[in-house]
Computed example of a mutant assay.
Amino acid sequence: MIRALVFGLALAVLGSCAIAPPSTSDEVQRLASEIRNLGPDIDPEEANRAARIAYAYTDQLAQEYQITDPPLIHNAKVNKGLKPRGLCWHWAEDIERRLDQENFQTLEMHRAIANADNPFRIDHSTAIISRKGETMYDGVVLDPWRYGGVLYWTPLPQDTRYDWVPREVVLEKRRLEQFGELQPYLGE
């Protein structure tokens, strides 16, 4: 009985620690500066707006997704139907969609997937913001899933935890693999 009570209390404490802290204006300004540094033709107002939205929308989504646990535990709850959303691809899709609504003239959004070819790790999706016309490899990773509703960002080359591949490349490879499996037998 006492062990069950201690276990329940420990889970409550750990769960309450997983709630995303609110972002600070200093963090927003650091991200805006990183986005401005993507190139001399980046509109400073667009960089500031993208950073503000990335942080504010991450906070909003953390509430909507009902984030109370670390990412992998939350994933299990989403997959069991206990939470509405919050898988990494949900975060990436929603952040990308929200930032695309701004119709930036000097910035562009990309999607990427890591671990797609690693059978020992789960796929991980993210959104990346770059200078208009540049590839995702020249951009900044925006990853709110990694720390459970706390926006993690870094220039893609500095994100040594993941080997990011363009989402469309991964999906095309999977489509071709699946298509190949569906081919009728034409042998003798």
Rank of each mutant, 00 (worst) to 15 (best):
residue 1 M to R: 10
residue 2 I to F: 11
residue 4 A to F: 14
residue 4 A to T: 05
residue 8 G to V: 07
residue 9 L to G: 15
residue 11 L to Y: 10
residue 12 A to W: 10
residue 16 S to K: 12
residue 19 I to M: 07
residue 20 A to P: 09
residue 27 E to F: 08
residue 31 L to W: 06
residue 33 S to L: 15
residue 38 L to Q: 09
residue 42 I to G: 03
residue 46 E to H: 11
residue 50 A to G: 07
residue 51 A to V: 06
residue 52 R to T: 13
residue 54 A to C: 08
residue 55 Y to Q: 06
residue 57 Y to E: 15
residue 57 Y to S: 07
residue 58 T to Q: 06
residue 66 Q to W: 05
residue 70 P to H: 09
residue 73 I to Y: 07
residue 74 H to Y: 05
residue 76 A to Y: 05
residue 77 K to G: 12
residue 79 N to F: 04
residue 80 K to C: 12
residue 83 K to N: 15
residue 88 C to V: 03
residue 97 R to E: 07
residue 101 Q to K: 11
residue 102 E to K: 05
residue 107 L to A: 00
residue 107 L to F: 02
residue 119 P to K: 01
residue 132 K to M: 13
residue 132 K to P: 01
residue 139 G to N: 03
residue 146 R to Y: 13
residue 147 Y to F: 14
residue 149 G to K: 02
residue 149 G to T: 05
residue 149 G to I: 01
residue 151 L to P: 05
residue 151 L to F: 02
residue 152 Y to E: 04
residue 152 Y to H: 09
residue 152 Y to N: 04
residue 152 Y to W: 05
residue 154 T to C: 02
residue 155 P to Q: 01
residue 157 P to V: 03
residue 160 T to R: 11
residue 161 R to Y: 07
residue 161 R to M: 14
residue 162 Y to D: 06
residue 166 P to A: 04
residue 166 P to D: 05
residue 167 R to P: 00
residue 168 E to N: 10
residue 169 V to D: 13
residue 169 V to N: 13
residue 176 L to P: 12
residue 179 F to N: 12
